[in-house]
Design a protein around this nucleic acid. Structure first.
Lengths: 145, 145
DNA sequence: TTCTTTGCAAACAGTTTGCACCTAT
DNA sequence: ATAGGTGCAAACTGTTTGCAAAGAA
C-alpha cells in the first residue's frame, strides 16, 4: 500500500488538483489508496456497488481518467481484450504480472532504482511515463501447472 | 533491423515452426524482418496491399498471432484505443515511445543488459515476457512543442 | 448561480470468430 | 488427400461520448 488515506486527506487531494470532491470520487479514491490490489474499472465498480449501488461504470472511467491526468494514479494498459488496471504507485517500479491469473505485484529494490536512473541518464530524454512489466507465473499458478 | 531475411530463410523459419509457408505469411514476414519500423496490423495491411491487394486484415492478425505464439515476433500492446505494434526483436530491450506521434525506437545497451539480468535474478522467477517502455517526446515532437 | 459531474445508452475501434472456400504439404 | 489457412462480414469487449438531470463551489 503506497498511501493509507483517510476521508479528509482524500478530499484535500482532490481539491488540490482542482477536482470537485463528489461522493463517487471519494469512494473510488478511498478504495484505490487503501489496497494493494491493482483493480480494473470493473472490479472497482463491483467493490463500490456494495456501498454505492447506483454508481455507473462511466463515472468510474471518468474519475480514473481525471486522476490519471493529474498523475495521482497510474494506469496499467494491456492488450485490446484485457481491461486496464489502476494503482496509486506512480514511482517507476516493476510490475510482475502473472500471465495466467493476471495477478499483479509491485516490485521495487535498491538495485532497480539505481539501475533505472542510469538507464534514463543514458537515454538522455525526459521520460513522461515508465512501463516496466515482467510476465512470470505467480506461485499459485506455478503449482497448478 | 534485427534480421535481414531473404525468401528462402523466411520459408525455412516458417517450416521450422510448423507453419505452412503461404504467400501471405511470406510477404508479411518479408516486410516485418526487413524494417526498423514497428508497424501496426493496419500499417502492415497497407504496405502489403501494394504487392497483394486482396489480403485481408483478418489474415494479418492471424499471422501475427501465430508468429507471436511461436515467439518469432513481439507484440507491443497499448491501451484499448491504440492498435498493437509488432517487431521481430524478441530480446529484452527498451522501447522508447513518443507519446505524441507514437514513433517507437529500440534501445539496447551494455548497462541495460547487465542490470536487467541482475534484476531478473533478484525477482527469482522465470519470466515469459518483458515489457520495458519509456514514454518520452521524440526529437521531432520536442521541437514542434 | 454557475460550472462541473453523473448516469444512462448508444457509439466507437481494434481485434477475433464462424464458416465456406482454397492451398501447401 | 487432408490438415490447416484465407477472407469476408458479423460479433465481441473495454472504453468513450452526448446529453439531460443533479450536485459542488
Amino acid at each position: 500500500m503506497v498511501n493509507n488515506m483517510e476521508k479528509q486527506q482524500i478530499i484535500q487531494l482532490l481539491h488540490e488538483n482542482g477536482l470537485k470532491a463528489t461522493l463517487q470520487r471519494q469512494i473510488i479514491c478511498e478504495y484505490l489508496f487503501n489496497t494493494d490490489e491493482h483493480p480494473t474499472a470493473e472490479q472497482i465498480m463491483q467493490k463500490i456497488s456494495e456501498k454505492y449501488p447506483t454508481i455507473s461504470i462511466a463515472t468510474i472511467y471518468s474519475t480514473l481518467k481525471n486522476l490519471k491526468e493529474k498523475k495521482i494514479i497510474h494506469e496499467l494498459e494491456f492488450s485490446n481484450k484485457l481491461p486496464s488496471h489502476f494503482e496509486p504507485n506512480t514511482n517507476p517500479h516493476i510490475n510482475i504480472i502473472c500471465p495466467k491469473c493476471h495477478d499483479i505485484l509491485d516490485f521495487e529494490s535498491e538495485t532497480f532504482t539505481k539501475f533505472w536512473k542510469l538507464i534514463v541518464q543514458e537515454i538522455n530524454r525526459s521520460p513522461e511515463r515508465h512501463v516496466i512489466d515482467i510476465y512470470a507465473l505467480c506461485e499459485k499458478c506455478q503449482v497448478k501447472k
